[in-house]
């Protein structure tokens, strides 16, 4: 296990346990939990709360032939799918499923300033993308209209709040304006999800925003 310092919030873990997060955020949560036993255990705790809520929600009588129908479902089912193989690259399995492979399979598109992205296809009001930031380069200074989750998969970045290495997730909201800068050394690859467009604080990126929908 890597040494992860920055974890998911309780709100995100509870929302994921309840199944109410937008798909883009669920992907960041599932990817972080794949890398982080601390959040895996915290998530299991919120799932235990869900189990208790479900058991107390009040029973509704099942149809008379329900058990027989279920046995028929079992008899007609395809054999259980084989356990998925574990990821050996830098993308944990849930992310690999969205990309169609590991980092070699990413179809990067330039967004200017050396930064590249691939938007992943998800339903709902939030969006999620992979970002490739060359070592030492910055993402333009911006603020947030909603929540932004940024999970590091390779390299590292820093802003005025802290340093974020592999497995770390930064949870930013309306209160934070920042200029994330990729650390020297390895290029930074991260998974970033937002439920509202970012607010870029300079003229040029605002034009870029129209075209690339950051």
């Amino acid at each position: 296990m890597k040494d992860i310092k920055h974890h998911l919030t309780d709100q995100l873990l509870m929302g994921y346990a309840a199944g109410t997060l937008p798909e883009a955020f669920s992907l960041v949560v599932a990817t972080h939990v794949s890398l982080c036993d601390e959040c895996r255990a915290r998530l299991a705790e919120y799932e235990a709360v869900g189990g208790e809520i479900m058991m107390d929600a009040g029973a509704a009588p099942m149809a008379e032939d329900a058990l027989a129908s279920t046995m028929a479902l079992i008899a007609n089912a395809n054999p259980a799918p084989k356990q998925e193989t574990r990821s050996t690259g830098i993308f944990p399995t849930p992310l690999r499923d969205y990309v169609g492979g590991d980092k070699d399979a990413v179809r990067w598109r330039s967004v200017g300033g050396g930064v590249k992205q691939m938007i992943l296809s998800t339903e709902g009001e939030a969006t999620v993308r992979l970002l490739h930031i060359p070592a030492g380069s910055a993402v333009p200074d911006h603020g947030h209209n909603g929540t932004e989750l940024t999970l590091v998969l390779q390299g590292a970045f820093a802003d005025h709040t802290d340093h974020f290495g592999v497995g770390d997730v930064e949870v930013a909201n309306e209160d934070l304006d920042h200029t994330p800068v990729a650390a020297e050394g390895e290029d930074c690859i991260c998974l970033a999800a937002t439920d509202a467009p970012l607010k870029f604080n300079s003229f040029l990126p605002r034009i870029a925003q129209k075209f690339v929908k950051i």
């Binding site: 949560v29 990817t31 799932e47 869900g50 709902g124």
Partner: peptide, 26 residues
């Protein structure tokens, strides 16, 4: 109860909310 809750929630998202559910690597 916890384990069955997670199965129920995933089925609910799949069948009722008709959404995709990324799951952590087991």
């Amino acid at each position: 109860a916890t384990w069955i809750f997670t199965i129920a929630r995933n089925r609910q998202i799949d069948m009722i909310r008709r959404a995709r559910r990324p799951e952590p690597e087991d």
